[in-house]
């Protein structure tokens, strides 16, 4: 029998979905490599890649958090404020009083789980709640650590400075996080239910699953990834700053979309989000390498991001059926 058209379309969709973010990463990476051949030189690659990619890791973590929120059709607009707050908690509280610091982080996690429950019970859009939360997080951060400074716990600094043999540490971390994210979303019961809630809550509930539990767990994990991102960023900069993670919210959303995710319908890709996050991070680096004047950097960066998203969207051909 003739292979149905559907399967071919499916094959193509899968193919482009993982390929597009990988290609956009390459497109950003190649000019950087051209300008900085050290990135591929056998004796210098390790140090240069480590340096170039290190600050991509907190963005990868934030993007995985955002991907979880978007998998159930929600969004976290407080991501950058949360990440910055966590650096302040680490730098100002954890350093002096590990117990209090830990309690603080657990409190943040609990608040995130409450947000998930609240969204379910009050049927409020997460964009409203998280924008409200963003002011609270920043307020807290400024109270704890009004100006950049503080000191990170030695363990955190050390954890971000591991030097595995042969393969640069940020690459090891990125691969590991992509695998964890993929496992979570596609191999666990939780992942299937989360994506199911993103597409069709009614079916999930009729199949006897608790939607509020799924939403609480998802937002708990959003908070967890945000916290990890803050710890990683704090460990890299070794200082606390209430505005440190500027732009992380929108960068993480853009990373998820570039990685093949959508705002509704429960379509996300963890591997894609990791690629997307690294591409977003490298765009900034590219402008520096190309010696674009700082006056123009913000604009050019925005233009490149729009271009990448446009090209990504161009390749996305979902098998849509028109209902009237």
């Amino acid at each position: 029998m003739v292979r149905p058209l559907d399967s071919r379309k499916e094959g193509l969709a899968r193919y482009t979905e993982t390929l597009v973010p990988a290609i956009s990463l390459l497109v950003v990476l190649l000019p950087i490599v051209y300008k900085q051949p050290n990135l591929i030189s056998p004796d210098r690659y390790y140090a240069t890649l480590t340096m170039t990619l290190a600050f991509g890791i907190p963005i990868v973590l934030a993007s995985l958090g955002q991907m979880l929120a978007m998998s159930i059709g929600e969004i976290d607009f407080a991501m950058e404020n949360l990440v910055s707050l966590v650096t302040c908690v680490m730098g100002a509280v954890m350093f002096k009083d590990p117990l209090l610091g830990t309690a603080f982080l657990i409190g943040i996690l609990a608040v995130y789980m409450l947000i998930g429950a609240f969204i379910h019970l009050k049927k409020l859009p997460s964009i409203i709640i998280t924008i409200g939360m963003s002011f609270i997080w920043t307020g807290l951060a400024i109270t704890i650590q009004p100006t950049p400074g503080g000191s990170m716990p030695a363990a955190v600094n050390a954890a971000m400075r591991l030097r595995p043999p042969w393969i640069p540490y940020p690459i090891v971390l990125a691969v590991l996080l992509a695998l964890i994210g993929h496992f979570l979303m596609f191999k666990t019961n939780f992942g299937i239910l989360a994506r199911g809630v993103g597409d069709n809550v009614k079916s999930i509930q009729q199949a006897g699953h608790s939607a509020i539990r799924v939403r609480i767990m998802v937002f708990g994990l959003v908070g967890l990834f945000g916290i990890l991102s803050g710890v990683a960023l704090g460990g890299l900069t070794t200082s606390a700053d209430p505005l440190l993670a500027k732009n992380y919210t929108l960068l993480s959303v853009a990373a998820v979309v570039l990685g093949g995710g959508t705002f509704a319908g429960g379509k996300v890709s963890a591997v894609g989000a990791v690629f997307g996050a690294l591409a977003m991070h490298l765009v900034v680096h590219l402008l520096v390498v190309l010696k674009i004047s700082t006056d123009w950097q913000a604009g050019v960066k925005g233009f490149i991001i729009l271009l990448a998203l446009y090209i990504g969207g161009f390749f996305k051909r979902a098998g849509k059926i028109r209902y009237i």
Partner: peptide
């Protein structure tokens, strides 16, 4: 659920 595979829907 349209975004899940056939097997995943069965599991739900």
């Amino acid at each position: 659920c349209l975004n899940l595979t056939v097997a995943e829907n069965l599991r739900v």
